[in-house]
């Protein structure tokens, strides 16, 4: 089966996010008040062939640990759906 995968990479809580901070600081200048906790990450989409959803998820977990994220500073939110 082929599964469509979405990996959202975010900086771990407590890790400073210079991009998020810069965006947050810029928003009031544009007239947007009340926006806080801006965190910038990146998302990756790809397809995985696996026997079932659990196997697909296990493979993506491993990929995230090994290459797609730097576990020292980043976390991944993984979404796996059958196509």
């Amino acid at each position: 089966m082929t599964f469509s995968v979405l990996v959202e990479v975010q900086l771990r809580p407590g890790i400073s996010d210079p991009q998020g901070q810069t965006i947050e600081r810029a928003l009031p200048n544009l007239g947007y008040e009340g926006v806080s906790e801006v965190r910038v990450g990146k998302s990756m989409r790809f397809a995985v062939d696996a026997a079932d959803e659990a196997a697909a998820r296990a493979q993506v977990d491993e990929l995230c640990q090994k290459v797609l994220t730097n576990p020292v500073i980043e976390d991944a939110i993984i979404t796996v759906e059958p196509t």
Binding site: I15, S16, P18, Q19, T22, N70, V72, I73
Partner: peptide, 10 residues
């Protein structure tokens, strides 16, 4: 150990 993040101030 550690990681190198984007510079503060970008």
């Amino acid at each position: 150990p550690g990681a190198l993040q984007k510079n503060a101030g970008l």
